[in-house]
């Protein structure tokens, strides 16, 4: 069964999937009346892949990359964000968020790192949407399927965007696709980090490797396997339970606010139209 899970994650024809994603971006942008994308570049592989796909879909002259470091962000992250923009030849801005973050936390000097990290993620979102309005663009998302499923994101922060080409690619598939489309190798190879505080790594914080996480997720989500089937496949029960709990507890992050029904038709319940209504 373990082999079956590994096999399930393999993308047979990466060129075809690249074309699917490029077409998706182009059509969703154009029919909504937009030709420009704004994208937050962290220096990591997700935003790099999203930027590469965005440039293929919309043309490099229509993609605006913005790096938004805080004073503790690693210098390597800054460099790699710039490297993505330079490799693609897209418009690039580096906007320090240190002044506004520090001004706010001067009121709360004891704030813990998670609280500060969330605030930074929302500050970046706010800048991306400011640019989007200013430049008549949509925000291209960078959330992959692994992080969406376990809720490894800041609500309304990095999880907020308009069009997301990565949302059905697990992290290990992001690596595969990124390497295929030509994201610089050092970005694909480096350890994933949200870089919210020095030394943070995703896998350290989540408590398992992306390879293990993705195999459990693809089993549970794509193949609808039961907890027992996953344990049978050779995963430790406590690891399986940890992943399934993260999926369940983060469901709220994948949903819009809930509304209390009192009328015949209710916006979030039985007023059912796609977003592409009339487009």
């Amino acid at each position: 069964m373990r082999d079956r899970l590994i096999e399930e994650l393999k993308i047979e024809d990466r060129e075809f999937i690249r074309e699917v994603l490029v077409n998706f971006i182009r059509e969703e942008f154009h029919k909504a009346g937009f030709k420009k994308a704004v994208i937050g570049l962290s220096g990591g592989v997700d935003s790099a892949l999203a930027a590469f796909l965005g440039a293929l879909a919309l043309g490099r002259e229509n993609v605006i990359g913005i790096s938004m470091p805080y004073k503790t962000s690693s210098p390597l992250s800054r460099e790699d964000a710039r490297l993505v923009a330079e490799t693609l030849g897209i418009e690039f801005h580096e906007i320090e968020i240190t002044p506004q973050i520090d001004a706010y936390y001067s009121l709360f000097p004891d704030a813990d790192p998670v609280r500060r990290g969330n605030k930074m993620a929302r500050e970046r979102m706010s800048i991306l949407y400011d640019f989007a309005h200013w430049r008549g663009a949509l925000v291209l998302g960078t959330s992959n399927k692994s992080e969406l499923l376990i809720g490894y994101s800041t609500r309304w922060g990095d999880s907020a965007h308009d069009i997301n080409p990565l949302g059905d690619l697990y992290k290990t598939q992001v690596w595969e696709m990124a390497s295929f489309v030509g994201v610089p190798e050092r970005i694909v190879k480096k350890k994933p980090s949200a870089d919210l505080w020095p030394g943070q790594t995703d896998e350290g914080e989540i408590g398992l490797t992306y390879h293990t996480l993705d195999q459990i997720l693809v089993g549970y989500v794509d193949l609808r396997l039961k907890r027992e089937d996953l344990i049978e496949a050779g995963f430790e029960p406590k690891v399986v339970d940890r992943v399934l709990t993260m999926v369940k507890r983060s469901q709220y992050k994948r949903k819009l606010p809930i509304i209390c029904k009192i009328a015949r038709r209710t916006v979030d319940k039985d007023f059912l139209y796609l977003r592409d209504w009339g487009l």
Partner: peptide, 11 residues
Amino acid sequence: PGRGYKERGMF
């Protein structure tokens, strides 16, 4: 609707 990435050149 396309789904499945196990083929070549198509869903």
